[in-house]
Design a protein around this nucleic acid. Structure first.
Lengths: 183, 183
DNA sequence: TGTACATCAGTGAACGCGCGTTCACTGATGTAC
DNA sequence: TGTACATCAGTGAACGCGCGTTCACTGATGTAC
């Protein structure tokens, strides 16, 4: 690491942490992230006040990625199919980044993560456009819970099926949407 | 800890670990459990080969508790109401034991936890009794995912509502069941 | 019944480790006059 | 333009800590003869 990149280390650290998680690292330590970034153990303190705030930034980045995937998926289809695609994208994101996904949802309350609300909004808007007004609230909650549940169960390995989970997930989402649009 | 209770320490350790989690302890160490049980750091090794196997036993106990709650809830109502009650019991269990719940679902794959399958069975049976045969698989997955998602989102604090979540959860479950029984 | 011995469930000191964080520092870059 | 100084982004040694686990042990309980 040369010292010439002014302030670039911040982004390098976030990217390194994300990569480590992608590669299966579960418990990230400040030191291990710095090590992987090729930098001294103290260097991160130039950019983050402590370990917590670094991990919170990583999580917020994750929510931005999730938001992007959901928005893309929503654009790729129309009507209820757009909602199904969002659900599939949500599960795919979790499956591709299990450790990051767990980090994101494990540090919810006290931490400020603006991108989290944006991701939620994309899903909620699509559901709101599909559900009759009087059950809008329940519909949003049910959809959010279902896709999150599918994602969580999937990365925790609770589906012992032979692997073609996509079809099963799609069928489950469609079943949910049946109850959502029917009045 | 007197040495007179023959083999009793095993259960004491499991109960102590469960209690610590109930009291908000998040990361249990072997030493902290032993300490809380009033026993030397080495004593647990008389009953568990290592930390992992102790925690796995704690998780399995948790699944037995969850199974019990689901079975009770199922008996407390009939038809689709029994399924709603199971869902509410599932969420209530997670809310009352967040750390334990996370532990249970965080060590899924490689570990042997027989009680896990039993809990799943109670929910699956009820769904199977309600759903038409051709969508049984999708229905079970959708329900399992939804109640699990509601529980997970709830303990991760993603509902910022004023607290009366029970009604919202109930409405979401009912909406799901609408899609489940309608053909 | 008494005695010798094995087993069993615990103790307590010690190990090596990685962690988050502190501290004082270094040397390059930017700025005022 | 040159010089003095401030700032900034990094280093590297050191701290104290709790951890999982090892080792050798102790003393009570159970068992065979």
């Amino acid at each position: 690491m040369t010292t010439s990149r002014r302030g670039g280390l911040r982004d390098v650290l976030l990217a390194t942490a994300a990569r480590m998680m992608e590669e299966g690292e579960v418990e990230l330590s400040l030191r291990s992230i710095a090590r992987a970034a090729g930098v001294s153990a103290m260097a991160p303190y130039r950019h983050f006040s402590d370990k917590e705030s670094l991990l919170t930034a990583v999580a917020d980045n994750g929510f931005a990625m999730l938001h992007d995937r959901l928005a893309r998926a929503d654009r790729a289809a129309v009507g209820r199919e757009a909602l199904v695609e969002q659900g599939m994208a949500y599960v795919a994101f979790a499956a591709a980044n299990p450790a990051l996904f767990r980090l994101m949802f494990g540090r919810s309350r006290e931490c400020e993560m603006p991108a989290s609300g944006a991701a939620y909004g994309v899903l909620a808007n699509r559901v709101a456009a599909l559900a009759p007004e009087e059950r809008r609230g329940a519909a949003i909650l049910a959809c959010w819970a279902t896709v999150h549940g599918l994602a969580t169960l999937s990365i925790d390995g609770r589906f012992q099926g032979p692997g073609n989970d996509d079809d099963a997930n799609r069928a489950a989402l469609n079943l949910l949407i049946d109850g959502l649009v029917v009045r």
